[in-house]
């Protein structure tokens, strides 16, 4: 039986964990700062967002192609359901946040520049209505992603430290504990 995620998914998971956490902190920092930090954080936020979008698409394709190791059978039904739903939401937000950010800048009439002269085409035409919807959506979805990530982290640690099953190990290069 499959014990680990495909190596490419494990690699992408930890790479994206770093990128997404950095991104959440960059986003929160840049909108709450008027110092020089604001400038370089904004310049980092946009290209990193595009990178996360590309990685998320790649990762979802790999995940659909290679599947996942099964959860331990003795895990309560509610926990199994929570795992399924939260992973769906995580994938959804990893895709949605960059797209909402891109659409939001487009609706605000901002050029979506990635630095070095690279510029993305607008996703939407300039629109007050859409900007007024997407700007707060970007913020609240980001808070939602943070909460999901904290829950995901807590669950992984519970599996490793309290339940001591192989769920966390399935996303690392550790061998699963034998029981």
């Amino acid at each position: 039986m499959k014990t680990h995620f495909h190596w490419s998914l494990r690699l992408l998971h930890w790479l994206m964990a770093l990128a997404v956490l950095a991104m959440l902190f960059i986003g929160a920092g840049m909108v709450s700062s008027v110092s020089a930090r604001h400038l370089w954080l904004v310049d980092l936020h946009k290209p990193l967002g595009v990178a996360i979008l590309v990685l998320a698409v790649l990762r979802l394709s790999l995940r659909l192609a290679t599947g996942a190791p099964p959860l331990p059978g003795e895990l309560p039904k509610a926990a199994q359901l929570a795992a399924k739903v939260s992973h769906l939401l995580l994938y959804g937000l990893l895709l949605a946040l960059p797209l909402v950010g891109w659409a939001m800048l487009s609706a605000g009439g901002y050029p979506v520049s990635l630095g070095g002269g690279w510029q993305l085409p607008p996703l939407l035409a300039q629109s007050d209505h859409w900007y007024a919807l997407l700007r707060p959506a970007h913020r609240w979805l980001a808070y939602g992603l943070l909460v999901l990530i904290l829950g995901h982290m807590a669950a992984a640690l519970v599996h490793r430290l309290v339940r001591r099953d192989g769920v966390l190990a399935s996303m690392t290069w550790q061998r699963r504990p034998s029981r």
């Binding site: 840049m30 909108v31 700062s33 008027v34 110092s35 020089a36 930090r37 604001h38 400038l39 904004v42």
Partner: peptide
């Protein structure tokens, strides 16, 4: 430093 503040 005024530029970053203006932008923000």
């Amino acid at each position: 430093p005024l530029l970053a503040a203006r932008s923000a």
